[in-house]
Amino acid sequence: MADVTLRDVRKTYAGGVEAIKGVSLKVADGAFCVLVGPSGCGKSTLLRMIAGLETVTSGEVDIGGRVVNAVEPAARDIAMVFQNYALYPHMSVYNNMAYGLRNRGLARAEIEARVHEAAQILEIEALLARKPKQLSGGQRQRVAMGRAIVRHPKVFLFDEPLSNLDAKLRIAMRVEIRKLQRRLKTTAVYVTHDQLEAMTLADLLVVMNGGEVEQIGAPLEVYQKPATTFVAAFIGAPPMNLMPAAHAGPNGWADSLPPGAVVGVRPEDLMLGQDAPAGGLRLPLTVEAVEHIGAESFVYGKVSSKAAAGDDVIVRVAADATPALGTSVAVTASRDKLHLFGADGRRLAD
């Protein structure tokens, strides 16, 4: 058991790509940390630096109070689950799990006990004699998990472990990974670009963009108080509506904002209705598209007011209140539902 601390970690690849531009982060012992961000933002790079698969250009990676910059992956006491599982194709499931333990010189009986324990937890006991190619994607995923947990590592590292599974299985495995991690109380760092996965798994959510951390916090906190417009747009589906503050006016509060400010409002915080609450927002919309997803619908509209003509806005409404295509409606949000950002994209004090 260990915490993971990164101190101003940077990575410049040979060739000059600056993949990580100074990340500091502290994952408490036993916590589940999720790194989320768009493709190419450096999530995998960061994870691989924790694993020891990439060198650290500068800064410190600290696992359980020990700076491990120069420590081999095997000696870092971590276990990693890869996106493509990276099971040894020529080894049986049993050997896949036992291999690392054998290399560490564990006694046969101990190895057997650990593998069977892991197999039992993951319900893959019946598959132990099979080769990876004789397994379904979901089963391979479990074996990859098994290979990680038999090591009893200090830290689990996951690099998009579920992205090769179908949607249903992904949700099931997501729940299982979380349960497993809670049960083993092992610190975990998990990379995904799926913000839903990130929200549901994380104790600590780290939103990254372009090699930098945009925001670190509990998932709900990040959702409710996004620190930047990037986070606001990235976390939440459909994404938060963002528009220049000038488009929201004329309005008492909007006029007092610094120039270039941005107003954000989540689709579920917009109400169909005519009258703007005091100090709130009111937008006249033309309904352009409607998505029914069951209990609720998403309305895609274009703002028809003079100030903001042409802005796209998404509104979440109850299924039975869905307006018809082409109709004009007005949506409103109260002041406390609005997120305000400065011209630099940073959140303004509430």
Partner: peptide, 27 residues
Amino acid sequence: VPDELLEASRIDGAGPVRFFKDTLLPL
């Protein structure tokens, strides 16, 4: 051969000789 196999081996504590003998040769 996927790089991840080498990386998985490294995490599993296999040095260059073991990786060669246990993974590359059988493959």
